[in-house]
Each structure stands twice: as C-alpha cells, then as structure tokens.
Amino acid sequence: MKILVMSDTHGDAAIIQEVKKQNLDVDAIFHCGDSELPFDASELKDVYKVRGNCDYDMNFPTEVIKEINGETIFITHGHLFGVKSNLNALSFRAREVGADVVLFGHSHILGVELVDEILYVNPGSLLLPRGRKEKSYAIIEKIGNSWSVSFYTEEKQIIVEKNLVI
C-alpha cells in the first residue's frame, strides 16, 4: 500500500494538482481538510477528502473511513478532536472505528507516531507550515510489518523519513 496525504492547502488549488502529478504511483490520495475549495473541485477529483474548520462546503464529510489493501484508514481534519492539545480524543475514535492508520491536519505541524499499533500521520501544510519552514505533504507505504512515512516539500524534496515496525 502506498498513499499520498496532504492537508491545509487553504485555497491553493494549483499545489494540489502539482503534488498529485508528482505522485502518480500511489494507491490513493487523501486531503485532511482546509482545502477551502468546493467539494466537487476538479483538483480534488479522485481524492478522499474531509471538511476542515475553514471549509464551508457542507458536502464534505467530517470523517472518512476507507479500506485500502487490507488497512483501515480513518481521516478527519482534527479540529473536532482537539488535536492541537493532544491525541486522546482522536485515539478513542480511531479505536472505535478499528483504524490501522489515522490521517489528520489542522495544526499545520508535520508528524508521525505509532501508538498501540495505530499509525498517526499529520502531513503538515502545503501553504502555511508551522514548526518548520518547509511546506509539506506525506507519502505512507506499508511494507510487510513496517510503515515507511516520508515527508516531502512541494518540490518533492525529502524533509524527514521514518520507518516504524508494528
């Protein structure tokens, strides 16, 4: 399984298109909210997407649960789960839905954590990053019993790479 994850693009439709073009070899694409685009925007075609606190199109769901290659992926923006404070509420929901992977945004801070065999990934922001200067997105791969999570700049330069064993 190989997926592309982005978030918090805040109206920059061109960057969504560019990142999609750079990563044509993925099994699925996820946007964790605050695209500030209409739900049916062409840039979000074939993208699993959720509503963030800055998205006003009510057609966006607040959560999506998708199974890809046997992995249950739970995506939400994060503002409804208080992710800027801690991941407690998000982890309760992840266990409730049987998630293997949790994708979220909102804080604009990239990060990855494996807790109780659940992978949590925040891809950062492709417009307004916090905690570092690079705008970012993530590529997640499942290889055997390990996860590879790589964070890239908008120019597809590697920022951070983590390998986590379940």
Rank of each mutant, 00 (worst) to 15 (best):
L119F: 02
E63A: 12
K162M: 01
A28N: 04
Y137C: 05
P123M: 10
H108V: 09
L114K: 10
W147Y: 15
V149Y: 05
I159M: 07
R130H: 14
R51A: 11
Y48H: 14
K21Q: 15
K156A: 10
H77D: 02
E18Y: 11
G131L: 07
N23Y: 03
K84D: 10
V47S: 03
F74C: 05
L87Y: 10
G98C: 06
K156M: 09
R95F: 11
I118W: 02
A99E: 05
E63V: 12
E18R: 15
E18V: 12
T9C: 10
Y48R: 05
L119Q: 02
I15F: 06
E117M: 11
I73C: 08
S125C: 09
D57T: 12
F81R: 06
V97S: 07
V97N: 07
E141I: 01
C32P: 00
S148P: 00
V160C: 11
L110F: 11
S42K: 15
S42L: 14
I65G: 03
I159S: 08
I29L: 04
D55M: 06
R132G: 15
F104H: 06
I143F: 01
V115E: 10
I73R: 02
S136F: 08
K133V: 13
Y48E: 10
E18W: 07
R93I: 10
I158W: 09
V112Q: 02
F104I: 03
S35L: 04
F92N: 12
K142L: 00
L164G: 09
A138I: 04
K84P: 01
V5Q: 02
E155I: 03
G98D: 08
E134M: 04
C32S: 03
H106R: 03
I159Y: 07
L24Y: 01
G144S: 05
E141G: 02
L44G: 02
V83A: 02
I159R: 04
H31E: 12
D12E: 15
V112I: 03
M6C: 07
T153I: 11
G33Q: 08
D27S: 10
I16C: 04
R51P: 00
H79M: 09
T153C: 05
A28D: 04
K49R: 13
N59M: 14
E67N: 14
A94H: 05
R93L: 12
P61V: 04
I143D: 01
P123S: 06
T9W: 01
C32R: 00
G98M: 09
L119K: 01
